[in-house]
Computed example of a mutant assay.
Amino acid sequence: MGKEYIGIGAGAVGFRKWKMDNGKVKSFRYYTQTNVKEFLKNPTKYSYEELREARDEISKYIPGTPLNYWF
Rank of each mutant, 00 (worst) to 15 (best):
Y46G: 00
K19A: 01
Q33D: 15
F15C: 02
A54M: 05
I6E: 14
P66K: 13
Y61A: 11
K37N: 13
I8V: 14
W70K: 10
S59H: 02
E57T: 09
R55I: 07
K24H: 12
K3R: 14
S47A: 12
T34Q: 13
T65V: 12
E53Y: 10
E49F: 07
F71L: 14
K17V: 04
L40T: 08
V13Q: 04
V36P: 09
R52A: 04
G9I: 05
Y61S: 09
L67F: 08
K24T: 13
I8D: 10
E53V: 04
G2W: 11
M1P: 12
F39Q: 04
L67E: 03
R52P: 00
T44Y: 08
K45S: 07
G14R: 03
I62N: 08
R16M: 03
K3C: 10
N35G: 10
G7L: 04
W70R: 10
W18A: 06
I58F: 10
L51D: 03
K3N: 15
D21P: 09
V36K: 15
E4R: 01
K24Q: 11
F28P: 00
K60F: 05
E57V: 14
S59C: 06
K37C: 05
G23H: 07
T44S: 11
S59Q: 08
Y46T: 03
K17H: 11
K41L: 12
V36L: 14
N68K: 13
V25L: 02
V25S: 00
